[in-house]
Structure formats: structure tokens, C-alpha cells
Design a protein around this nucleic acid. Structure first.
Length: 102
DNA sequence: GAGCTGACGCCTG
DNA sequence: CCAGGCGCCAGCT
């Protein structure tokens, strides 16, 4: 079991209508400081549809990377449709942040 | 094995 | 509120 697999597993657990931050995933993977590495894994994302990397956002709710491209508006709506609350161009973490239940 | 890079996060100015 | 800098970790060259 590599750190990488652990990250994908946690990401896959993000429920519909909620989002998690890179740092949160990193913490679940037992490495609170590895948020950056998490981003690298999301970029690679070998489990495309299986791992909802679009539900992973920055610590302040900003949609970086995957969303930074021309798909930004579309992805934003997709999350919005899932029930994620947006506050301007960022996710309202106070309401849509995934509540870890382990 | 060494060095560079990045879908991050937090602190300062 | 915006910009810049530093530390973190894993993957690739």
C-alpha cells in the first residue's frame, strides 16, 4: 500500500455534494504536509471517473488545476448541481467541506 | 542518486 | 485584499 493508493482511496470516499481539500486528503493519508504530493496524484489520476478529483479543492475553496482550464465554469456547475455550495468563484467550505466520518 | 517541478498550505509584507 | 517567499512530499528526468 503506497501513499499514492491511500490518497486515491480517500478521494474516492468523498460523498456527492461535498468537497475535500488537498490538505485534508493528505491528512487522511497520514501525511498532513503532503498536500502538494496529493495534487501530483490528482494530476496523474489513473482512476479517472472512479476518483472524483473534481471534488478536491484548495484549502480556501479555490478550484485550481483541473478546473483552472477552460472547463472551470462547467466543473463549477457540476459541483453546484451535486449540492456543493459556492461562494463566488470559491467553494463555501463552511457548508460543503466533507465531514470525515471515520 | 541528485535535481527540478508542481492540481498545496501557511506566514509576512 | 493581493503578492511573494518558504517548507512539504512524491514522481520524473
Amino acid at each position: 500500500m503506497t501513499f499514492r493508493d491511500l490518497v486515491y482511496q480517500q478521494t474516492r470516499r468523498i460523498p456527492k455534494g461535498k468537497v475535500a481539500t488537498y490538505g485534508q486528503i493528505a491528512r487522511l493519508a497520514k501525511k498532513p504536509k503532503a498536500a502538494r504530493a496529493v495534487g501530483v496524484f490528482m494530476r496523474a489520476n489513473p482512476f479517472a471517473p472512479e476518483v472524483p478529483c473534481h471534488r478536491v479543492v484548495a484549502a480556501d475553496g479555490s478550484l485550481n488545476g483541473y478546473f483552472g482550464l477552460q472547463k472551470l465554469p462547467k466543473k463549477k456547475e457540476m459541483l453546484l448541481k451535486e449540492g456543493v455550495i459556492f461562494k463566488g468563484e470559491k467553494v463555501d467550505l463552511s457548508k460543503s467541506l466533507w465531514q470525515e466520518t471515520h
